[in-house]
Design a protein around this nucleic acid. Structure first.
Lengths: 356, 356
DNA sequence: TGATAGAAAGAGACCGGTCTCATAACATAT
DNA sequence: ATATGTTATGAGACCGGTCTCTTTCTATCA
């Protein structure tokens, strides 16, 4: 019956010390596993701790040691398979090194990202992995560095920041996918992303504030240019943020007098939306339209046809980011660098070869 | 250049107080937003804090207040869409109430679950949401209660524990799905789950240590019994833990002289594996075999045919669990109860009507 | 004008650990 | 027997906040 009456002051080292009839310092040595204590006293303390069900207060521990054993992760959206896989990679690396992970969602909103970063810094995380929503706002990240907290960027790089980043080889991936489409005879290719469109059409690639998307578009455009195709930016479309928006984007693309014959989806969520759009328009893949999506998501292998994808090896990316951060936390001397995890094109059935 | 040389002792209230030429207590009042301070002094302190880039140490704050503002969540596997959706629901509820969420993965392993719970208690979370891997091992959860930390179970209930639980209406859901299959003329139905099989066949439903699965099986079996079908446990198969195991399970099921004509998948991961198994066996859905999966996962709506599913409304479940926990943390007087979130059957194309 | 209430600011204990330094106890060397 | 070293234990400061209690100052009232 002595139940949840009051928050119940928890058992402290002092309590254990008293019960074991030793000093607080000695009990702390046993309980904290440091210093040196005789076998006899050790047993006494351990017995007392067990009897009282002592559980260390990690908060207090962190306060005096200055280390929390926690890695903070700020992702765009855990619900997105890309991030949940990455988080698993990070968690695995963290657990192996004895760290725990605290996750915060930014929803790809800069403000939410800022407050998440502030919060985690406040919780005195030992290091931070951030997927920056925008690569052109770096004050809050600069502050992380000034606070002396190790930082690793994930999926997107910010050269001005002089900090480690783990990304895919986005440009190469886009180049490979685009070349493949061209090799299959496609001449009108579209790139579709969920990035917020800042007032309609895209005029300048450099204005894309997400480096991963920007580099993919750069790769995409470079191949089109190299192939001598006109106006490569014409079919780059942003704003496929939800099913409705995507339906609109696709409808507009296909209504063009020279409609694209192949679509490149910037991520698996956009890919899924495009797939559904095409389905609802009664278009057949790849007969009417070909498509390639980023990320080997669940759904891409069970559709008819299965979707040709760019395999991003996100788990490895996450693991690498975790390992890198831990190396920084442990002050391993390393040059700041951008680590690119290679991708590969997985050919399935969503691209048709077309004649001219 | 005064860069990450040393961990850089961070700015404290004392520093700000000195800079603002006031006492530590006064600076703390301004910075902590409590007590009463004159406008003039407030401005001074705020200016000093801004100049020094003061960031509160949440750890220290938690130490003295005894509240961390963190909710701990222990899930089976974040990568599973079921849990990532739930986590979003929980996070949303938490954020609304000013709490943050720290997530730990148990991998559905009891030991990992225990240490995750210990860790989170150590971090002095204000409350805990746990998806218990097994409903027959409750010591560690009992300890949570004794420690005075509010606890809410998620997805699975443990009646002996006398603690709030948020689950689906698993039995009803299974009953509805099974009845539907029977209504479509099916007479041989199989239930497939990823639960660890403890040495082959299932002999006693009560030995299923996961209450959600147990209740679904109970519902499934009750309908078969009620319909006068023989040996209802015969087609209940556990152990579909990965693609290879699932292939085996499916192969064995279909090799039966009286092979089932319909399969009920216990979750969307099992469902996906079953789908792939059937595909690789060259079987057509629903012509050769009908199937229903739990959870409205991405993949279920883009297959051919789209999969008939039990819609679990996981986001709502997560949100409800979060809200319930917060109510407990805030000591709202409430009876301990099990909250069931209703599910619904979403008919798509993976079930055929068969004659007799 | 002195008494008194109320507001604003300061002093310092406290949370529960870690860790440095002092002290006690005992073994070995001289 | 005394000096020296080594090891085990104790005392207490400290981390960076919160919060209670005390003191100081100013305004109001009889």
């Amino acid at each position: 019956m002595e139940d949840s009456a009051h928050p119940k002051r928890s058992v402290t080292v002092a309590d254990v010390a008293k019960a074991a009839k030793v000093s607080k310092a000695t009990a702390a040595r046993v309980l904290g596993g440091y210093g040196v204590v005789s076998a006899k006293i050790t047993d006494q303390v351990i017995a007392a701790a067990a009897a009282l069900e002592y559980r260390p207060n990690e908060l207090a521990r962190s306060m005096s040691t200055g280390r929390s054993g926690i890695i903070g992760v700020v992702v765009g959206d855990i619900e997105n398979a890309f991030f949940s896989l990455a988080v698993r990679g990070i968690s695995d690396a963290a657990r192996l090194a004895g760290f725990n992970v605290i996750i915060a969602n930014s929803g790809e909103e800069l403000d939410a990202e800022k407050s998440a970063v502030d919060l985690l810094i406040g919780k005195r995380v030992d290091g931070l992995i951030v997927t920056p929503a925008r690569c052109d706002s770096i004050d809050h990240l600069q502050h992380v560095r000034r606070a002396g907290v190790p930082l690793v960027l994930f999926d997107r790089a910010i050269p001005e920041l002089d900090v480690d980043a783990v990304t895919g080889d986005d440009q190469d991936a886009a180049i490979a996918a685009t070349r493949y489409l061209i090799g299959q005879g496609h001449r009108r290719l579209a790139y579709v992303s969920a990035m917020d469109a800042e007032g309609g059409g895209l005029t300048d690639i450099r204005r894309i504030s997400n480096s991963a998307v920007r580099e993919r578009v750069e790769g995409f455009v470079s191949v089109l240019t190299e192939a001598g195709l006109p106006n490569p930016l014409h079919y780059v479309r942003l704003g496929a943020t939800d099913q409705h928006q995507t339906d609109g984007v696709i409808k507009r693309l296909l209504a063009d007098s020279a409609a694209p014959t192949a679509l490149l989806a910037s991520d698996s969520l956009v890919g899924l939306r495009i797939f559904k759009s095409l389905q609802s328009l009664g278009l057949s893949i790849p007969k009417d339209v070909s498509m390639i999506s980023f990320l080997d998501a669940d759904w891409t292998s069970v559709t008819v046809p299965p979707i040709t994808i760019v395999d991003q090896r996100v788990y490895e990316m996450g693991k690498l980011a975790g390992e890198r951060l831990i190396a920084r936390i442990e002050r391993t001397p390393l040059a700041v660098e951008r680590l690119r995890v290679s991708t590969s094109l997985v050919l399935r059935g969503s691209v048709a070869a077309i004649g001219r």
